[in-house]
Structure formats: C-alpha cells, structure tokens
Simulated scan of single mutants.
Amino acid sequence: MGKRLNYKNAFKRASKVLSDKRLSNKLVAEAKETLTSRAKASEKISQLKNKIFTLIRLVKAYTKGKYREISVKSMLYTVGVLIYFITPMDIIPDFIPVSGFLDDASLILWLYSHLGQELQQFMAWESKQEEK
C-alpha cells in the first residue's frame, strides 16, 4: 500500500504532526529508523546523516518544549521534510537506484539553507545544553 506523497502534502501533514506530541514522537522514531536503513543503501544519504540527525533533534527538542527559539513556519518546513523523507513513495521512488535518494537529499540540503541562522542558533543552544 505505497502512498504517493509530494512536498505540498508533506507540509500539510506537518501542522498536524507538530501539534500532536504522540505523532511528533512517532515521526522522530521513524525518521531515525529510516535514516539508519537509507544511510546503508545510499552514499548521498550517508553523507547527510549528521544533518538529518540535527533536524530530528530539533523536532524532538521543540515538541518537548525545551527549544522554541525558531519560527513556527521553519518548524513546519522541518517536519514536512522529515515526513517526506520517511515516506516510502515520494516523487522519485527510492527503489530507483541513485535518483530515488537524490530528491530526499536535495530537499534536506534546501532546508538547511533555508533555516540558516535559526539552525545555527539551535546548534549553539544544543552545545550549551551538553556543557551543563
């Protein structure tokens, strides 16, 4: 029962996921699992592993209420990208060698560029939390 998901659908679902702690936790768990399996299958995804884990940690910190110094719009983009990432059938199915992972990788790189300073601030906050 593969579902076809495009960027717009992922972003529509993001609002629902972000407002429901149970769904947010499920997204975080599925994103970690998907990342682990895809990093083994794709060199491109493997290269982005740290970036994706940062996005996962951002969603986790936000949904737990620990970090809120980011716009809601940026969080919706982040959740939307993670939803798109974990969905089995997207614009270019992942079972198509190389190309299937490129759309995921491109979207993750776009998000990093889009979040820019907000993501840098999160990582600085996260580093301070580790020092405590």
Rank of each mutant, 00 (worst) to 15 (best):
R4E: 11
R4P: 09
N6E: 07
K8F: 15
A10W: 04
A10P: 09
R13A: 11
R13G: 04
A14F: 14
K16C: 06
V17L: 05
V17F: 07
L18Q: 01
R22Q: 09
E30K: 14
L35F: 06
A41W: 06
K44T: 11
Q47C: 10
L48D: 14
N50I: 14
K51V: 07
F53A: 03
L55I: 03
I56M: 00
R57V: 07
L58I: 01
V59C: 00
V59T: 06
V59W: 02
A61F: 09
A61N: 12
Y62N: 04
Y67N: 01
E69F: 02
E69N: 07
I70A: 10
S71W: 00
L76C: 12
L76N: 13
T78Y: 11
V79E: 10
Y84E: 05
T87Y: 01
M89P: 07
I91L: 12
I92G: 05
P93F: 02
F95L: 06
F95M: 02
F95P: 02
I96G: 08
P97E: 12
F101I: 05
D104W: 07
A105M: 06
Y112K: 05
Y112W: 08
L115P: 01
G116I: 08
E118A: 01
Q120G: 06
F122K: 01
S127Q: 08
S127I: 07
S127H: 03
